[in-house]
């Protein structure tokens, strides 16, 4: 096996919402071209940690961050960081598909416009086709690109949201409970998609569904009360975790 390359290096990360210490000294090396799952009970900080990686937490008042997150040799919290560019490089998919009440085409073009990725019409169409192909929607939607995206099934909407991230050619994709509004079959198909996407991207997924973490991820981090308790290969975490807290959580003793 090739040596594992770190894509995101989280170093002594502390985050406070006002007086609340939401992340405590989190250190985590997210491996490149792998799916990393973050699990833990509600309020443990897993979504907060995820949202730190593309600085989504900046949008919340009273947030204070200490420590560093290094992506491509740069601390994303440094003043020189262009947050818009960071969010292009580190895309995000949310719990509920958040498609715009517009055509499928416009949904996909939107990001390109925001990021001023001005391209010729044919280049744009190529990108649209490629990103829809990557999420398995091209054949279904190629003749319906002018239809409103809200008419799609929830699974298709979530796929479209992923395509909307892919079209910006990101390197990292953050997924915050991307399957929580989907049925089991749609969930399975999204999980399959993640496995394909990890060939080209680094994925971090927050999930409440432990079986999903076990099925879909290569590495798993267990968080509890703002701390990263244990991080390791998913198969190790789910067969013989090192920490008692992890064991108790995944076997259903609490949470």
């Amino acid at each position: 096996m090739a040596a594992l390359k770190t894509r995101i290096s989280i170093e002594n990360l502390n985050m406070f919402y006002g007086d609340f210490h939401a992340l405590k000294d989190v250190c985590l090396q997210v491996p490149q071209n792998n799916v990393t799952a973050l699990i833990g009970p509600s309020g443990c900080g897993k979504s907060t940690l995820l949202r730190c990686v593309n600085r989504m937490n900046d949008l919340i008042d009273g947030v204070r961050t200490e420590g560093r997150i290094i992506i491509d040799d740069q601390n994303i919290f440094s003043p020189e960081t262009d947050v818009v560019l960071l969010r292009k490089k580190v895309g995000m998919v949310f719990q509920r598909p958040n498609v715009f009440d517009q055509s499928i085409l416009n949904n996909l073009r939107f990001g390109l416009r925001i990021h001023r990725q001005m391209r010729s019409k044919s280049e744009t169409m190529e990108l649209i086709q490629k990103s829809l192909e990557d999420v398995g929607l091209w054949d279904i939607l190629k003749d319906k690109l002018h239809h409103n995206a809200r008419q799609l099934s929830l699974e298709q909407q979530q796929r479209l949201c992923i395509a909307r991230v892919l079209i910006l050619l990101p390197e990292v994709i953050l997924l915050d409970e991307p399957c929580s509004s989907l049925d089991p079959i749609a969930t399975m198909r999204i999980e399959e998609l993640l496995r394909v996407l990890r060939e080209r991207y680094t994925l971090v997924i927050v999930t409440h569904n432990m079986q999903q973490a076990a099925r879909a991820s290569d590495y798993t981090g267990f968080m509890y009360m703002g701390q990263l308790i244990e991080f390791g290969l998913t198969q190790g975490i789910f067969t013989a975790p090192c920490k008692e807290l992890t064991e108790n959580y995944i076997t259903g003793h609490f949470g």
Partner: peptide, 9 residues
Amino acid sequence: QQPVASDLR
């Protein structure tokens, strides 16, 4: 029951 960790072992 989809057991994991020590339950699975």
